[in-house]
């Protein structure tokens, strides 16, 4: 699939994880990685910038993964939301999928090949949603113009 890379927001309180994911995306994909170790900083970034994917850890000080992804859903509804967690707790997984509307739930340790594939799909989905929104928008514009012409 010929596709330009997307923007991936990576949030994990562990530098060893964000460092790794940053290198992974730089070396093995055309995506651009924006990484944060503090969830609050990630929220501040989302307030200013559009992203294609939000990939978040679950257990973090300050704001947990679910709260962060909920915030992302509110700020950037077209961005695909992924949870990457080392805490294999079924209840929190189900809650995440149901409450936040997850695109994917991943457990640590992960497979790089799988993660890259999931990220590519996540970027594609996010772009499709945005272009759908754009087209709906332009369709509405056209409809308005037609109305104006008619009246």
């Amino acid at each position: 699939m010929t596709q330009e890379g997307g923007t991936i927001l990576v949030v994990d309180d562990e530098q060893m994880v964000t460092g790794n994911l940053e290198l992974l995306l730089r070396m093995e994909s055309t995506h651009e990685a924006v990484v944060f170790n503090r969830p609050e900083d990630a929220v501040a970034h989302l307030e200013q910038h559009e992203v294609d994917v939000v990939l978040s850890d679950f257990m973090m000080p300050g704001l947990n993964g679910l709260q962060l992804l909920n915030k992302a859903k509110e700020l950037r509804p077209t961005a695909s939301r992924l949870l990457l967690t080392g805490y294999a707790d079924k209840d929190s997984a189900i809650k995440a999928i149901n409450d936040v509307g997850l695109f994917y739930y991943l457990e640590k340790p992960w497979d790089n090949g799988d993660l890259l594939l999931i990220l590519r799909n996540a970027v594609e989905r996010s772009r499709l949603l945005r272009s759908l929104a754009d087209r709906t928008g332009s369709l509405n514009d056209m409809r308005e113009q037609i109305w104006k012409l008619l009246i």
Binding site: E14, V17, L21, L115
Partner: peptide, 9 residues
């Protein structure tokens, strides 16, 4: 799992 994830990747 967190350091192991980083390590394997």
């Amino acid at each position: 799992h967190t350091p192991l994830g980083a390590l394997i990747s």
